[in-house]
C-alpha cells in the first residue's frame, strides 16, 4: 500500500494506538524547512578535522570521498553549532535567501 502523507491521512487511517508502523520514518521529515541561516564552507581553510561532523546534532554533515565535509540541507536546521565549533573559521552562517 502506498504510504499517504500526513495531510492525506483521514481519521480512519490512524493505526491502533496511533503507532507508526514504518521504521525510520523520521528520515522523511524535512527539518531543513526550519532554517533561517545556512552554513557555507570555505574549504581552502579546512584541514578535514571532522569537528563539524561530530558536533552536528542532526547528523546532517557527512564526509565526502575527497575528505571534505558537506551538509545535507534536507535536514540542516541552521543551528550554527558547526560554525561555532570549527577551529579554523571554515564555516560562515549566511541568511537564507527570500
Amino acid at each position: 500500500m502506498a504510504v499517504k502523507s500526513e495531510s492525506e491521512l483521514g481519521w480512519k487511517d490512524i493505526e491502533t494506538g496511533c503507532i507508526v508502523t514504518e521504521a525510520g520514518s523520521a528520515a522523511q521529515y524535512p527539518t531543513g524547512g526550519w532554517r533561517s541561516q545556512k552554513p557555507e564552507y570555505d574549504n581552502s581553510k579546512c584541514n578535514k578535522c571532522g569537528l563539524c561532523y561530530i558536533y552536528c546534532p542532526d547528523c546532517s554533515i557527512t564526509q565526502q570521498p575527497d575528505g571534505f565535509y558537506k551538509v545535507d540541507m534536507f535536514y540542516c536546521k541552521g543551528c550554527g553549532i558547526c560554525a561555532k565549533e570549527c577551529p579554523r573559521d571554515v564555516i560562515t552562517m549566511v541568511p537564507e535567501a527570500g
Binding site: 500526513e6 495531510s7 491521512l9 481519521w11 494506538g17 496511533c18 503507532i19 507508526v20 508502523t21
Partner: peptide, 29 residues
C-alpha cells in the same frame, strides 16, 4: 497483545503529531 514491542518488527509508539494530524488522531480515539 497484538501490538507488543518486538525488535523484529520495529514501530514508533507515542510519535509526534503536528496540527495536520492531531485532530484525526483524537477523532479516531
Amino acid at each position: 497483545y497484538p501490538l507488543a514491542l518486538d525488535p523484529k518488527k520495529p514501530v514508533t509508539m507515542g510519535a509526534f503529531a503536528p496540527p495536520v494530524i492531531y485532530s484525526e488522531a483524537r477523532k479516531a480515539q
